[in-house]
C-alpha cells in the first residue's frame, strides 16, 4: 500500500545568532490512509517543526530545508509552487494548532473564519457556504450553531475554541489532519471531549491523523502507530501496543519509567541529566550522555535506524544495542 504521507530523510536547519541549529535531522515517517500516527517527544525535540514543514508553514529564512522529501500521495510537496501548495492546505491536509486561544483571529466571527477555508477551496455561493458552516459546527458538537456562528473567539471557552479550530481544519474533508498538541492547553475533562470528537470524526470521514503530543497516555489510547523523537531524530517507531509493552530504545524506556502512576506510588526511575544543547550536539548518538545502556562506541558515530522486524513487523529503532541483535533479549 502506498502511504498517504511519506516524509523521507528530512533535514531542516535554522540560522540563529547562537549558531546553526538542526531541529530535524533525517526524519523518516509514513502515514497510511485512515490511521492515526503519534509523534511524541519532549519540548524542543523537533516534532512541531516536522509537522509545520509538511504544510510548509516554516518561514524561510531562518528555516532551511537541507535535504529530504515530503510526498503526499503522488505529489512531492517541495516541488509544488506556492499557489499549488495553497490549494493543498486546508483542502487535502488540515491542521489543528496547539493554542486555540491565539490561533483564531480575534476580530473575525468564527463563522467568517470557517467560511474562509470553504470559499477558498470550493466554488459555491455565500448562502451554501453558510449552510455548510452550520453543518460543520453541528458536526463538531458546538451547541446552538446559529447563535455561535456570529460570535467572536473571545466569547467562547477554550474547549469551544478548539472545536472551532477542528471545524476549520475539517471543513474541506481533508485526507490528513495534522493535530499539533490539540489538547495541551485544555483541562482533562475537556481534553477527553476533544479527543473523542476527533476519534468520531475519523470514523466518519476515514481521514488519517498525525497526532503530535508529549502525553503518552493520549498516545496509548488513540494512536495506531507511534514515532518517538529525541533531539531531531526519530529514535523508535512501532505499533502502539508493542511500544508500551516492550520499548526498544533506551530513551523510550526512560520516558515510560518517568511517568508517575496513580496506582503504584513506586519510586520513579527518571532519565538522568537534560536534553543536550541543540546548537552543540555531541558526536555520535545524541542520547548517549543520559543513556543507561551506553556502549563505548556510542560517542563515535550515530546509530542508524534499524529494522527490528524479528521482534515485531514494522518496529524500528536507532540504537547500537541492536547492531549485534542476537545478544539482546527484548
Amino acid at each position: 500500500m502506498k502511504p498517504l504521507l511519506n516524509i523521507s530523510n528530512l533535514n531542516i536547519s535554522f540560522q540563529s545568532e547562537a549558531g546553526t541549529v538542526h531541529p530535524v535531522r533525517g526524519v523518516d515517517l509514513k502515514v497510511n490512509e485512515g490511521e492515526t500516527v503519534a509523534l511524541v517527544g519532549e519540548s524542543g525535540c523537533g516534532k512541531s517543526v516536522t509537522a509545520l514543514s509538511v504544510l510548509q508553514l516554516l518561514p524561510t529564512p531562518p528555516a532551511r530545508f537541507d535535504s529530504g522529501s515530503i510526498q503526499f500521495l503522488d505529489k512531492d510537496l517541495f516541488k509544488l509552487s506556492e499557489p499549488e501548495m495553497q490549494r493543498m492546505r486546508g483542502n487535502d491536509i488540515g491542521m489543528v494548532f496547539q493554542e486555540p486561544m491565539t490561533s483564531l483571529n480575534p476580530i473575525l466571527t468564527i463563522g467568517d473564519q470557517i467560511a474562509e477555508t470553504i470559499l477558498l477551496h470550493n466554488n459555491i455561493s455565500q448562502k451554501q457556504t453558510k449552510e455548510k458552516v452550520l453543518d460543520i459546527l453541528d458536526k463538531v458538537a458546538i451547541p446552538s450553531p446559529e447563535k455561535r456562528i456570529d460570535q467572536y473567539p473571545h466569547e467562547l471557552s477554550g474547549g469551544m475554541k478548539q472545536r472551532v479550530m477542528i471545524a476549520m481544519a475539517i471543513s474541506c474533508n481533508p485526507k490528513l489532519l495534522i493535530a499539533d498538541e490539540p489538547t495541551t492547553a485544555l483541562d482533562v475533562t475537556i481534553q477527553a471531549q476533544i479527543l473523542e470528537l476527533l476519534e468520531n470524526l475519523q470514523k466518519e470521514t476515514g481521514m488519517a491523523i498525525l497526532l503530535i503530543t508529549h502525553n503518552l497516555g493520549i498516545v496509548a489510547e488513540h494512536a495506531n502507530k507511534v514515532a518517538v523523537m529525541y533531539a531531531g531524530k526519530i529514535v523508535e517507531e512501532s505499533a502502539t501496543e508493542y511500544l508500551f509493552e516492550a520499548p526498544a530504545h533506551p530513551y523510550t524506556r526512560g520516558l515510560l519509567n518517568s511517568l508517575p502512576n496513580f496506582s503504584s506510588g513506586n519510586r520513579l526511575n527518571p532519565i538522568p541529566g537534560t536534553v543536550p544543547d541543540p546548537t552543540n550536539l555531541p558526536n555520535g548518538c545524541a542520547f548517549q550522555s543520559r543513556c543507561s545502556d551506553a556502549l563505548p562506541h556510542c560517542g563515535e558515530r550515530e546509530p542508524s535506524f534499524l529494522k527490528l522486524d524479528q521482534f515485531e513487523e514494522g518496529r524500528r529503532a536507532a540504537c547500537f544495542i541492536y547492531e549485534s541483535v542476537e545478544s539482546v533479549k527484548l
Partner: peptide, 16 residues
C-alpha cells in the same frame, strides 16, 4: 478522563 499510558487501558469513559 485521565489518559492511561497503557494500550487497552481505556475504560468506558464518562465524558462530561
Amino acid at each position: 478522563a485521565n489518559p492511561v499510558p497503557k494500550p487497552g487501558g481505556k475504560s468506558k469513559r464518562k465524558v462530561l
